[in-house]
């Protein structure tokens, strides 16, 4: 924990909230031939689409408020995640039904970056530190604040 936890003499805490959503997608780049698409994207190119249970971990860093003992109100974070992410993406087809992903291939990297863009302006207490999006237990993308060491959620470490 060297160099962590203390910033300018103040206690910095990270809190993480997890939320899940299920969605369909497929990978296709319209600028490439059908054959090129199949070669690059393999079975993810199937035009009928396929789906995942996505797991999203959102980490906010900040100092606990001395009055409430909280970095931010987790109930409020839960509502933000529900409104900005779950309502937009849960049980949707990411290629067709999420305007923020229009024109982008809905890979884990691109979805995580869109989620970062949606959440960052909404976090008013503390600072968005990391967005980790699992497409499966074996594949995830991280977006981290430039100021972060990227460690985020301690529960992710065995």
């Amino acid at each position: 924990m060297e160099g962590q936890g203390v910033s300018g003499g103040k206690l910095m805490i990270r809190i993480t909230r997890k939320v899940e959503f299920s969605a369909a997608h497929f990978y296709h780049n319209p600028n490439l031939s059908a054959e090129e698409n199949r070669r690059i994207f393999g079975k993810s190119n199937n035009p009928r689409g396929h789906g995942h249970n996505y797991v999203l971990e959102v980490t906010v860093a900040g100092e606990p408020d001395p009055e409430t003992g909280m970095v931010l109100d987790l109930k409020e974070l839960k509502e933000i995640l529900q409104r900005e992410v779950v309502e937009r993406m849960d049980h949707k087809h990411l290629n067709y039904e999420v305007p923020e992903l229009a024109g982008k291939i809905p890979t884990c990297e691109n979805i995580a970056a869109v989620i970062w863009g949606l959440l960052e302006p909404k976090i008013k207490q503390g600072k968005l530190d990391r967005v980790r999006l699992y497409e499966s237990a074996d594949l995830f993308a991280d977006c981290t604040a430039d100021s972060s060491d990227g460690l985020g959620f301690a529960g992710g470490r065995a």
Binding site: A112, A137, F140, A141, A145, G150
Partner: peptide, 10 residues
Amino acid sequence: MKISMARRYR
């Protein structure tokens, strides 16, 4: 914002 991708193998 930095972005990274991680994959797990066994």
